[in-house]
Amino acid sequence: MNRTHLVLLMSVVGLTGCARRAANPSTAGAATHAPAPAASDRSNAARPAPDDTEQALAALNAAPIYFPLDSSILPPEATEELSRIAQALRQRSQAKVTVAGHTCELGTTEYNVALGQRRAASVRAYLVNLGVEPQRISVISYGEERPADVNAPEKNRRAEFSFRLAEQARAGEL
């Protein structure tokens, strides 16, 4: 079996496995079975079509990870979500993720940027320990600058995920 066939097989298996999981009701309809590419399309198997790109990214939705006040230690309830994210990333070798660390408004700007960075870094380290290649995970800190809810500080103490495919990163799409 040559490399192209292996990549095609892995892509179909990955997309098929995701179609059965409906963790996010808003994207449950997005992950459907994709038809096998025609023989003429097999040479482009490593480069997903626009619809395949949307399906691959839809399967990578993730809930934010919430942290306690003044902490960058992952809470125990985050491990299940991070395990799911790591598995999805391992199944999609072209996918990359940016982890954004956020804080509430308590503390100085400098402190909050550093805390947001530590939160994002702890999520990254956990994903790396679960087998995701470190070069596929970038981190950024917004500190207190992008609150999720100004009336609920506990919702601002979080790490959020944004996913993209390698082709999009090279083309500057995301």
Rank of each mutant, 00 (worst) to 15 (best):
R3H: 06
L57V: 11
I137F: 06
V7W: 01
A34H: 12
T108W: 10
R146A: 13
S122P: 04
A30M: 13
G172Q: 13
A78N: 06
P76K: 10
S71K: 02
A31P: 03
I137N: 02
D70Q: 02
N2S: 10
Q87K: 11
Q168H: 07
E133M: 07
S141P: 00
L82G: 09
Y126M: 00
R136T: 04
S138D: 05
L57R: 11
L9V: 10
V7K: 05
A120R: 14
H102M: 05
E167L: 10
P64Y: 12
L15N: 12
H102W: 03
L89F: 09
A28K: 08
L127V: 02
D70K: 01
I85L: 02
A45G: 08
P35Y: 08
A28F: 06
G101W: 03
R136E: 06
P35G: 06
E133Q: 13
D52E: 15
A121M: 04
V128K: 13
E144V: 04
S71I: 00
V99L: 13
T79L: 15
A121L: 04
E80F: 12
G29M: 15
T98Q: 13
P35N: 10
A166E: 09
T4N: 00
E105C: 10
S26H: 08
V132R: 07
D51I: 07
S83P: 07
A125R: 09
A166S: 05
A100F: 12
T32L: 12
G143R: 04
T98M: 09
T109Q: 11
N44L: 12
A34G: 08
T16Q: 01
L9N: 08
R21H: 04
S72Y: 14
V150L: 02
P147Q: 05
A120M: 11
E145W: 05
P153Y: 01
T79D: 14
L8M: 03
E54C: 07
V150F: 01
H33N: 07
Y66T: 09
N151C: 10
S162L: 04
R90F: 01
I137L: 13
R157H: 00
A23H: 08
V132Y: 09
T108V: 07
F163M: 15
A36R: 11
L115F: 01
F67R: 06
I85C: 03
N24G: 00
R92P: 03
E54Q: 11
C18N: 12
P75T: 12
F161S: 14
V7L: 03
G17M: 15
D52I: 07
I140R: 10
D51Y: 10
Q135T: 11
E154G: 08
N44E: 14
S162Q: 15
S93R: 12
V99C: 11
A39D: 12
A22N: 14
N151I: 02
A171N: 13
H5T: 05
A45H: 04
A36G: 11
Q55F: 09
A95S: 00
K96N: 05
H5R: 12
K96Q: 07
L15W: 08
L69C: 00
P68S: 14
A166I: 00
